[in-house]
Design a protein around this nucleic acid. Structure first.
Length: 425
DNA sequence: CCTCCACAGGAAGCGCAGGAGT
DNA sequence: ACTCCTGCGCTTCCTGTGGAGG
């Protein structure tokens, strides 16, 4: 009994609601000897940097040109890289950094950091120093001491220790809290330095992020701008094929049409290569468990899974009353006795007013006061925008003017998710 | 054609939390 | 410490709308 409940807790959402609820727990030994179509799953991970970045030759070249002065002992340009998720910004800049380290002199010091972690001016400067001087004490210095330390290190001693070309690569730059002062500090460092230099390479996927910067920081940071365009379907196919060779034991396990489908789906999703690779990974895992090849079917199912996972994550973070509304809607959908529904394009829709009544019923049962129907109409708009429900305006066949709603996902699954989040873990 | 139904959705205002200013 | 301001989530009130039914 204990063993079973432990196993259930350890499983992900999907397994808990898996087919027929049958639980079979293998041993690790079993799992190790299970035959898999994968050789190296890592190559499908979003963090994997391939040896050759496909379709980013121009961007990489522009980046290299911006940093080229470092090899002539001049200050590299500040640069700003912009592009949507999964367009290869991070991987390209890491590729360039690696090239710089392997081909440049010891005096060129590039440091990459993600600003989700290093989100203040202080943390960024500290990382710059500690990255190259691991023995540097982690905290305890005031900001000005830290700044002086950095300048001293960049300048060298003018005798035995040479001046450096520090290049600070700041990924997800928009996450920095005191961004203007960070940029200002790094730019000003060059005025305070007698030798050496500090350059910035900023990376962001937020379009309007630049507006937040003050004019001075903006003009220094955006000295050069590189825009990473979304990949098109053909390019995504190429990327997938490249990774398939590395990821699978035998690349013929993946159907050509499966690749095309994954590429087409990801291309519609803003040309996100990360998403294409995720689909391939999931499809591969499905094929593994089904002991089949990766066909259109596996890719479609992988997409459905990915979408559901995203939706269920959204549901669990929704305000309580929106969740109860979803619960009410799922209960209507599951109630075969319910007759006041409307068929539209083969789908069953429910009247917003009826759904509201059901919602009130649930809320009162929980000993709470329901929100007004006016506010519920706002909820419907929000839930529709989130893609959790589909709403349409009533037309012929329905008395009065109202909104018809239905769940976008399986009612049974939605009910379980809501019930488990409402009752708490 | 008129009336009723079943809402849609705009406007105004309320109570509260959190931040800025003094 | 306090006041003031602002934004948010929500309610109350109200007018508008489009189809069904008589």
């Amino acid at each position: 009994m204990i063993a079973i409940s432990f196993a259930v807790e350890g499983l992900g959402r999907r397994e808990v609601f898996g087919k027929k609820g049958v639980l079979w727990v293998p041993t690790f030994k079993d799992m190790l000897t299970e035959k898999s179509i994968f050789r190296n799953k890592e190559t499908l991970s979003p963090h994997f940097v391939p040896e050759h970045m496909l379709f980013r030759e121009n961007e990489i070249r522009t980046l290299m040109e911006g940093l080229l002065p470092a090899l002539k002992d001049q200050k590299p340009h500040n640069m700003f890289i912009y592009g949507g998720t999964g367009t290869g910004k991070t991987a390209s800049s890491r590729t360039v950094i690696e090239k710089l380290v392997s081909e440049g002199s010891d005096r060129i010091k590039p440091v990459y950091m993600n600003c989700r972690v290093y989100d203040t001016r202080y943390k960024v400067l500290q990382k710059c120093i500690s990255h190259f001087n691991p023995d540097f004490a982690k905290t305890g210095f005031s900001f000005s001491v830290l700044y002086e330390r950095l300048l001293d290190w960049v300048e060298g001693d003018g005798d035995h220790i040479e001046a450096k070309r520090l290049i600070v690569v700041l990924d997800e730059l928009d996450m920095v809290k005191d961004l203007d002062s960070l940029i200002y500090t790094l730019v000003r460092a060059n005025d305070d330095l007698k030798k050496g230099s500090v350059s910035i390479v900023g990376i962001s996927n937020k379009v309007n992020f630049k507006i937040r910067l003050d004019a001075r920081s903006r003009s220094s940071l955006c000295e050069r701008e590189i825009v990473f365009q979304p990949y098109n379907a053909m390019q995504l196919q190429g990327i997938l094929k490249q990774r398939i060779k590395q990821a699978f034991e035998d690349d013929s396990v993946v159907d050509e049409s499966g690749i095309n489908l994954a590429a087409a789906i990801a291309s519609a999703e803003n040309g996100d290569a990360r998403y294409a690779l995720l689909l391939l990974l999931r499809a591969g895992e499905l094929a593994d468990s089904r002991k089949t090849r990766i066909t259109d079917k596996e890719v479609q199912d992988a997409r459905k899974q990915a979408e559901e996972d995203k939706a269920f994550e959204i549901i669990s973070t929704l305000p309580e009353h929106q969740q109860i509304f979803l619960l009410a809607l799922s209960s209507l959908s599951l109630d075969s006795q319910y007759h006041r529904l409307v068929e539209e394009g083969g789908e069953r829709f429910y009247l917003s007013g009826e759904t509201y009544e059901k919602y009130c019923h649930y809320v009162k049962k929980m000993g709470k006061e329901p929100r007004t129907s006016r506010w519920m109409r706002e909820y419907i708009v929000e839930l529709d925008a989130l893609g959790l429900i589909t709403s349409i305006q009533s037309g012929k066949g329905v008395r009065g003017r109202t909104t018809l709603v239905r769940l976008a996902y399986e009612p049974e699954k939605v009910r379980k998710i809501v019930e488990s989040t409402l009752t708490g873990p």
